[in-house]
Computed example of a mutant assay.
Amino acid sequence: MRVGILATDGVERVELDQPRGALQGAGAKTEIVSLHHGEHGEIQARQFDVNAAGTFPVDRLVADAPSTTTTPSSCPAAP
């Protein structure tokens, strides 16, 4: 399974790291999708919304993401 994680500059590091780790631990491949990326293809994470907390590479931009998605109504497990 592939999961796109939508994030941008200012993302709280723990709020990206923990869900991403859980998804990867369950076998999913994750990609960071953003509206833009900095000069080096990365977004800046924060800690407590104040302190710089490193960067994450952006795997793709929203504009470049595939237009097909799985929605609850098209999911095989949905009623």
Rank of each mutant, 00 (worst) to 15 (best):
G25C: 05
A45Q: 09
P72S: 00
D9M: 13
L61E: 08
G4E: 13
G54H: 04
S34P: 04
I5D: 06
G27F: 07
A45K: 03
V14E: 10
V3Y: 03
P79W: 12
D17H: 10
G10C: 10
G41C: 06
H40V: 00
D59N: 13
A53N: 11
P79S: 14
A52E: 12
L35K: 05
P66C: 00
R13S: 09
M1S: 12
I43L: 03
T68C: 00
P72L: 05
G41K: 00
Q44I: 04
D64P: 06
A63Q: 14
H36K: 12
L6T: 02
T70V: 15
G25F: 03
E31P: 05
L23N: 00
I32V: 15
H40G: 00
E42N: 07
M1P: 09
T30G: 09
H40T: 03
D49V: 05
G54Q: 09
G38N: 12
E15Q: 06
T8W: 14
I32Y: 00
P79D: 14
T71R: 15
A28K: 02
R46D: 01
A7Y: 02
G4C: 06
T30H: 04
D64R: 01
A22R: 15
A28T: 11
A53K: 10
H37M: 11
P79T: 14
D64C: 01
F56C: 06
Q18C: 05
I43M: 01
I32F: 00
E39I: 03
V33R: 05
T8Q: 13
L23P: 04
E12K: 02
S67N: 05
